[in-house]
Each structure stands twice: as structure tokens, then as C-alpha cells.
Amino acid sequence: MKFHMNQERSKEKKSGWGSKESRLAYLFMTPLLLCLVAFMVVPMITGIQISFQNAKGDFVGLGNYHLVLGEPRFWNNVRLSLTYVVCNVLLSIVLGFLAANLITQKSKMVSMLRPLYLIPWIIPPVSSSILFRTLLDANTGPVTRLIKMITGKNVMILDQAKTALLAVIFHNFWRSFPFAMLFLAAGLTMISKDVYEAAIVDGASKVKQFFYITLPLVKNHLFIVILMITNWTLQDSESCYSLTKGGPGTATEMVAVRLFKDSFVYFEIHTGVVIGIVMMCISIIFAAIYYWVTKAKEMETYE
């Protein structure tokens, strides 16, 4: 996810449809575009079409939308999604940012640690949720035993609404924190040392250095990683479903989990499609923000 700016572009002469090179370029793009149209655009349209139908295929207008948006369970899903996203983003970004400072140095040890830190990000969510179940088990899990040692109470972490939600958040934090850390570290290494040296000569304190140098200069990296993690958390059904199956009850049933359960566990296709469209709209808003920010960044480099 490096953002190389194509410096040649400004010098580039616009070449029209007619030129041989441009025709060939379109030819090279064709397989990709065909795939995307056939398996992304077409299903999106079919999805919208299904959302206006009932199980028999009759047109019911906004009936399905009324059904979903009118039920308290859906708004509970939305509320949980929000909690999930906000907590996970805050934890991963703040701690990731602090930890990023530890892996920007050029040394053998650090370059060995970076891939080690990335491990949670590359193991399958089902595997990691089994590991977390083992840690959190009511009888044998070390975490529960530690809690019992400190407070003297028996806790069933995955069976109580509040603690289950905490567990889900923590699990996802464990998975996304490494990515945030490495991405922000990459941003930090792009700041030249001279800037800090100049600041030290001018007598700026560490705190001032952070707020007036570090933060403005990694602003773009920070923004992009926040958006990416927000989106991942919002869309994440896998790591959450495999840890708690949305339970106990609906205590950890985020919108994506609800969508997964409705569509592929209980086969309530028509509510599933509506929730899918609602989710798509939210993601399009995020994509628009992302587009706008990366574009603004590109303008800065040209000026």
C-alpha cells in the first residue's frame, strides 16, 4: 500500500482512443474489467432487484426495507457494529501508533521482529478464535483463572453479554493491531531526521515535536489506516462469528454477523439482501471519503 505518485503523468501528452498504444492498453484491461463487471456490478444490480421482492418473487416495493429497518434487533446490530468499530479503531490506532516508534529503527533485531509482529494478521480467523476460546474457557482458560485469582469470582467470559463483546473486540484488536503498527511505522520512516534535529536545536520538547512534526507528517498514513481498519471491522463477520456465533443471544451480533447468519445459516434471503444493501451504502460513503483524501494528497504533491 505504498502511494507512489506518478510524476510522469503531468508531462504526459493525452493520447486519444485512436492510438495503437491506448487500444492495446484497453485490450490488456479487458479480462480484469470483465471479471469485475460480471461478478461485482451484475450481482449488485441483482441484489437491488431481489430486495424489492418477497420470497415468491412478487414485487413488494419497500416492504423488505420496512421490515428490517423497523425491527429493534437491526438497530441493536447497528449499535453493536458502531461499538465494535469505534473500540477496535481506537485501540489499534492509538496503541499501533505508540508501538510503531519501536520498529522504525534500522537493526537486525527490529527487521526480524516486524514479520513476527505481523503473524496475527495472517492466521485464519477461525484458528485465532479457537486460540481465544482456549484462553477464555470458563474452567481451564488462563485468563479466567487469572481473573479468579485476582477477584475471586468465577466468570464465564463468552457467556455474558458485556464480557463476550469485550472478547470479540479484543480478538479483532489482536488481529488488526499489527497491520496498523507496520503501516504507521512505514509512515514514520518517511519523515527525515533533519526535521527533528532542527526542532531540537530550536528547543522543542518531545510533546511539541509529536504534535507539530510527527502528527502532521504522518497525517495521510494515519487517515488511510483508520479508514481501512474501520472498513475491515465493519465488514468482519468471520472472526466474530467463529468466536461467539453472535451470542449469547444477540449480544455480539454486529450487522455483518447478522447478514452472515440471515443469508447462509437461516437462509432468510430477503432480509439478508436488504442488510447487504444498507452495508454497501455505508461502505460507499467510506470509499468516497477515501477517494477524496487520496485525491487531496495527490494534489499536494503536484503543487
Partner: peptide, 16 residues
Amino acid sequence: LLLLPLLPAIAILIPL
């Protein structure tokens, strides 16, 4: 292309 990965696959999985 840069924006497409942001869209949730799960949202269009039923029609797919």
C-alpha cells in the same frame, strides 16, 4: 480499483 476493495464482499454474496 483502489476503492473496490473497500466494498464488502458479503453484501453482494447472496446474488453472487
